[in-house]
Design a protein around this nucleic acid. Sequence first.
RNA 1: GUGCCCGUAGCUCAAUUGGAUAGAGCACCAGCCUUCUAAGCUGGGGGUUGUGGGUUCGAUCCCCGCCGGGCACGCCA
Length: 548
Amino acid sequence: MSTEIKSHLIDLLTQSLARVAPQSAASVIALERPKQAAHGDWACNVAMQLAKPLKRNPRELAQALIAGLPASPWLAGAEIAGPGFINLRLKPEAKLDAVRRVLAAGAQYGRAGGGRGRPILVEFVSANPTGPLHVGHGRQAALGDAISALLEAQNWKVTREFYYNDAGVQIDNLALSVQARAREQRGETGNFPESGYHGEYIREIAADYLAQGGDPADLAAVRRFAVAALRREQDEDLKAFGVKFDNYYLESSLYTEGKVEATVSALTASGKTYEQDGALWLRTTDYGDDKDRVMRKSDGSHTYFVPDVAYHVTKWQRGYTHAVNIQGSDHHGTVARVRAGLQALSTVTGVGIPRDYPAYVLHKMVTVMRGGEEVKLSKRAGSYVTVRDLIDEVGRDAVRFFLVSRKADTEFVFDIDLAKSQTEDNPVYYVQYAHARICSVLAQAAADATALAAAELAPLVHPRELALAQRLAEFPELLAEAAGDFAPHMVAFYLRELAGEFHSYYNAERVLVDDKSLRLARLALILAVRQVLQNGLALLGVSAPQKM
RNA sequence: GUGCCCGUAGCUCAAUUGGAUAGAGCACCAGCCUUCUAAGCUGGGGGUUGUGGGUUCGAUCCCCGCCGGGCACGCCA
């Protein structure tokens, strides 16, 4: 394994360090991959870090460490460089070993066991059932699904959950909006609410409601109908996007099951609450919030913050000692509140919820551009662009790939023209094209996969071939890091680079050469590249087409 | 005004968590298809990392102050 090679190298350095500087033998030695090929395959900065405590010159120390390295079948050489880096160079066999490992592991290649099968709850989208999903939800769906897949690849037992806000005033608003449209369609006065929902879809729902014999005066029935209709619509949006949830948690159930009241009682018992101006407040400032928060309004109803806390208590109680929430950064204010609420409860129940529970990934807004102009409207939703609009126009693969291709905390400019382009450059097609090209070559070679897995790799001597093998070796490390940082964009960038190196190689060298052993070795290499492209694209929810 | 986030090539973005000469793609210029898919490849120019200090062997990264942008500051969600 590359991790075995890496730990092997660390072991060599550790042994050397024990001889050279016994007093620092316990130091942790880290290896990193240098940016420049001239700096070898692995680099170590331990000499610079220990120079000060040992009061030795870093270059001199590095030289001593190199001299003290035991012999190794993998290591081709070690050099001192720059201010005191130790650059390690691997033998070709050590690099090519990655190809064999990829072919042996197949779809499992890159997976690791860091999660140890522990449960983790990933909450995302969590849209109100008041309209079709917008592009912000799309970013969240793409991020959440990819993060979930990354965690699964590290052996976490992931539950994808959608928190359904079906209890608040926004639902009342929805019901009133639909009711007004229904009345209008009957030629009556609608009394459309001040802060109602104006989208065309409201009229459609009203018409459907009337068509199946609904009575506009029955607000509860209108409400049920509208919520069901929008829930169905959002499900279809998600289905079109290829995102599946394991569980939908209904906010309304927190009320019907008494969990909201229970949370209020528990918080009151915590001694962290007080009455003021006829309302019940929680001293969230004791836990880092910038002001205290109202739990129960003077009219007796609760603020949304209480069911939010109650909901997160259920996450913990359901056994999810790890949880990630993916949310728009416009909701960042809730982070401190929810955590404060959980901490206050923790003091009562003694359950010991960690201070940083749950973890958050906050993403910024998405701006959609077409022809250099910002697109703000959709036909059905009116005031915003829907995920469906985007999928219909540029395709699911492009939308998913694009939306995870940037760090979550940067504002996102979604260029429709770029996403649609099939003749210019488009990162999605670039990666998929590499996959399709390999499929084509393999089909012509009619090669047997098991034979290739056993192929002799020694004929692979070109720098491009060794570089490709090295790139494949990095994949497991990359996935572990991307999962740890909840950062699927790293996978997108990796795939872009891997595809780029493959395309270069493809143009420079012919795979189907007459020399049989070379041909087999090259087929094995590109088969391994194809496998990693597939594995990576699968994590992002993007297809890997055989033909393009 | 207060809090959080962001600021990197003309544009869109990376940068191995403090490492070596800050990298890709687009756009621009010049080349490559009678050989495995040209949705591809090769080469070229392009930077005071918003700015001023500080911390140290070393800062795009950490600390402080400014400038600019976004979001949030409700007994709304």
